[in-house]
């Protein structure tokens, strides 16, 4: 079991009122699963993603990541956890605008304390994996949206993390480019990566193998997703 969440509660204080973002979440995710967490805005899916991504800690309950209780970790340990085990992919890419693709991909390795030569080698490898080896010296502004997201995927992959955590990864992309990214995810999954997709779009969630729906801070449904022929076809076509 890679991820095990037991009776997880997350409360926020907003002004004077306490908001219960997550009420009682129980969840397990295995290695090499491809899970979509779905829910409308305000459902608590972003809060769950923050906790899964070690950006935030639960108010109550347990979050075991590879048998490590995340809620007991210090800030530095959480940073190390994010660095080694979590690969973030964001809706708006979140690349550093002044750095070129290679430097952006190298960034997590730098905080991991990996020497420059090896860092470069691994970053190039990751960029090759997403098909952008020829865009190494380009800055984000010189890349298309799809290319930017690929750089972000390379950055997420470069530390060989336990999970790839994608938050609305196609939200800022046109549908064709979005499908390309989803096809890339599909490949990554088949290569053995564990993927967690956070989305409010049914269409995107359909690419995953398991869909968890969240409503009002609770898990509403958690089902295996048998991909439709339509989705398979889109992926197949994109792969060409």
């Amino acid at each position: 079991m890679l991820i095990e969440i037991k009776n997880l509660v997350k409360n926020y204080v907003m002004g004077d009122i306490q908001v219960q973002a997550l009420r009682d979440i129980n969840l397990t995710i295995d290695r090499n699963e491809y899970v979509a967490i779905m829910g409308p805005s305000g459902s608590g899916k972003s809060t769950l993603m923050n906790i899964l991504g070690c950006l935030d800690t639960p108010t109550e309950g347990q979050y075991l990541f590879d048998n490590v209780d995340v809620s007991t970790l210090s800030d530095d340990e959480l940073s190390a956890m994010r660095n080694r085990e979590i690969g973030f992919i964001f809706q708006n890419f979140n690349l550093l605008p002044k750095m070129n693709s290679l430097q952006n991909v190298e960034l997590p390795l730098m905080y991991a304390g990996i020497p420059k030569a090896m860092r470069r080698e691994r970053a190039i490898e990751a960029l090759e994996r997403v098909g952008l080896a020829d865009r190494m010296d380009h800055k984000p502004t010189e890349l298309s949206g799809g290319q930017r997201q690929r750089v972000a995927v390379a950055r997420a992959l470069v530390t060989k993390p336990g999970i790839l955590l994608a938050d609305e990864p196609t939200g800022a992309l046109d549908s064709k480019t979005g499908v390309e990214i989803m096809a890339l995810f599909d490949e990554l999954h088949r290569e053995g990566n564990t993927l967690i997709l956070i989305t409010h779009e049914r269409e995107i969630a359909e690419y995953s193998r398991r869909i968890i729906q969240i409503r009002d801070g609770l898990i509403f449904s958690d089902e295996e997703n048998i991909r439709s022929d339509d989705v398979e076809e889109k992926i197949y076509k994109t792969r060409g």
Partner: peptide, 9 residues
């Protein structure tokens, strides 16, 4: 971004 990819305080 730096914090998300593993920078400590």
């Amino acid at each position: 971004i730096r914090r998300a990819v593993g920078a400590r305080k």
